[in-house]
Design a protein around this nucleic acid. Structure first.
Length: 350
DNA sequence: CATTCGTGGAC
DNA sequence: TGTCCAAGAAT
């Protein structure tokens, strides 16, 4: 593999840009306040970073406000029932994060007296906190001079250095080069680089004229900077098919149950259904009733496409017993992933 | 180390 | 409509 020219970034230029263009985010201490010695609350930074894993700022904002309203401190979150955390997380995706979030809050309270560790190494021992998140919290909250490497930084650095291999193969090299650039204001630098990636050096649009790193950027000297990072070959998604059964009792209540605690949509609520397989089998209704077909729901997961045939019927409650019955107007408060909200909508509970 | 984990928005 | 992809972690 070609070794990168270890040119440090112009961190001063990046920080100067950030001082003028920092985005206003609910979990952020703006650079002017940070300069006055105001420190971010590690609880809020941690919560935001976990929510932001593979998730857009736009999607996170309202969940963050809701969580901090319900649970303003790590003690409050640690004391909350896991069920309520899963319910509030519903719709945000990657539900292992919610379980790890709760486990992490309890670990911070029980093992650290409610105080988050102040180093990346210490943070990385906690559930749901990996290489990126530990570095981000340590830099933002404690100005540890550690390389914070997320998808934005990978893109910016791949362009800056014209990395000719997919990021996965060059990631550690990028990390080493980035480490050489981290200034004293490590937290502002990390946030600046992420803002830069989100707004200036974006995936489909590189606004090089606005970029403080343009003078040293290799891709900016090419016809199309967005050609970097180079992509790995993609594989096509398999299709899985199955049936979903929406049951109502005589009063119109809807039947839900819990999914297993591991695997896809772990621990979330669901409408009963068949296995999901490459070939669609005949429907096997959970119990007797006036079963009627409502068409198909298509849902895209990261690694497969799911096509569910939606059925509904009015049934005798005695026929099923591993779940619970919910009034239709209370479905909104259940820990239902988007997939099953689509199913319920198709069956007339939209 | 490659795979398995969601979802909504931009284009 | 299909494709891409966003402040990754766990296994």
């Amino acid at each position: 593999m070609p070794t990168l020219d270890p040119r440090p970034l112009d961190a001063e230029a990046v920080l100067a840009w950030y001082d003028r263009h920092a985005r206003d985010l609910p979990w952020r201490v703006p650079p002017a306040l940070r300069a006055q010695g105001v420190r971010p609350d590690p609880y809020r930074v941690w919560l935001s970073e976990v929510m932001l894993q593979q998730t857009t700022v736009a999607a996170v904002r309202r969940y963050f406000l809701r969580f901090t309203e319900l649970w303003p401190t790590v003690f409050a979150l640690a004391a909350a029932p896991l069920d309520s955390v899963l319910r509030e997380w519903a719709g945000l995706g990657y539900y292992a994060r919610a379980r790890n979030l709760h486990a992490c809050a309890q670990a911070v309270v029980e093992r650290h007296g409610g105080v988050f560790p102040a180093t990346a190494a210490g943070l990385a021992t906690l559930p749901g906190i990996g290489a990126y998140t530990s570095a981000a919290i340590a830099a933002i909250c404690f100005d540890e001079r550690v390389a914070v490497l997320d998808g934005n930084l990978e893109r910016v650095l791949a362009r800056y250095h014209r990395l000719e291999v997919p990021v996965r193969e060059g990631k550690e090299e990028l990390r080493a080069v980035l480490q050489l650039s981290v200034p004293q204001r490590a937290g502002d630098f990390a946030q600046a680089m992420m803002d830069l990636g989100a707004t200036v050096c974006a995936p489909r649009n590189a606004a090089c004229l606005l970029c403080p790193l343009e003078p040293g950027c290799a891709a900016a000297r090419t016809a199309d900077p967005t050609a970097y990072p180079v992509k790995a070959a993609k594989t096509d998604k398999p299709i899985r098919k199955g049936h979903a059964y929406v049951m109502r009792d005589a009063g119109g209540d809807v039947y839900l149950r819990s999914r297993p605690s591991k695997g896809l949509l772990a621990g979330m609520s669901e409408v009963p259904g068949s296995d999901w397989a490459a070939e669609l089998g005949a429907p096997t209704y959970p119990t007797a009733g006036d079963w009627r077909h409502h068409g198909q729901v298509v849902h895209m997961f990261t690694h497969f496409r799911l096509e569910l045939e939606v059925w509904s019927a009015t049934v005798e409650p005695a026929g099923v017993d591993d779940g619970w019955w919910v009034e239709p107007q209370r479905l909104g408060g259940e820990a239902l992933p988007t997939l099953f909200r689509k199913v319920l909508a198709a069956a007339g509970h939209g």
